[in-house]
């Protein structure tokens, strides 16, 4: 379509340690670029409106909804998707914990849950408080069950595997 050609831009993305050079419509979301152009379909499109968290990826280690970011705006970041979190035979501890605790049923939200959890643990490590942190000046955050639930509340799971998701994360925290 001619009107689409007029909006194409060269875009460079760094995903899971690999550099990609693409030519994309400016209006392409990071999620669509990952799924349609880079064949990284682990990030899911559950709503495309930032409501469900199934597309959660990490930008420089911070979690973000890939459906709410234009690919052009992600160029300056190191992007990590579920495909970069762990691989067969070398699973991230959270991936193994989700298997061990049966923290999934249909599995559609799982990549987003795991990316979210990986970044969430880093937030806790960095001492970021949440809405349920009793004392924001008290130093290290104790990632107990209620902290975990609060911090994971942006990732919907319709199968309702929350009990086991929380257990899996708590297991990794130790």
């Amino acid at each position: 379509m001619p009107e689409r050609v007029a909006t194409l831009s060269p875009i460079r993305l760094s995903v899971n340690g690999r550099e990609y050079q693409l030519e994309l419509d400016h209006r392409t979301t990071l999620l669509d670029a990952l799924r349609e152009n880079l064949d990284l379909t682990g990030s899911k499109k559950g709503c495309d409106h930032g409501q469900c968290g199934a597309c959660t990826v990490m930008l420089d280690g911070r979690r973000a909804n890939a459906c709410l970011i234009f690919a052009v705006a992600a160029q300056t970041h190191d992007i990590t998707t579920i495909e970069g979190v762990g691989a067969a035979g070398n699973l991230h501890p959270l991936q193994q914990a989700f298997i061990d605790h049966d923290g999934l049923q249909c599995g559609y939200c799982t990549p987003g849950q795991i990316c979210s959890a990986v970044a969430m643990l880093a937030e806790v490590e960095a001492g970021w408080p949440s809405a349920v942190t009793p004392d924001v000046a008290a130093g290290p955050v104790d990632l107990d069950e209620s902290e975990t639930r609060e911090r994971m509340s942006g990732n919907l799971c319709r199968c309702g595997a929350y009990v086991n998701i929380v257990a899996a994360i708590q297991d990794v925290v130790g």
């Binding site: 990030s43 579920i82 699973l91 799982t110």
Partner: peptide, 23 residues
């Protein structure tokens, strides 16, 4: 027994192909 799901590995790795992932 609490056997693990055979599709659990592909699902936690993001490799499991949902119908929306087909091409």
């Amino acid at each position: 027994e609490n056997a693990s799901r055979p599709d659990g590995g592909p699902k936690v790795r993001g490799e499991f192909a949902f119908s929306g992932d087909l091409w």
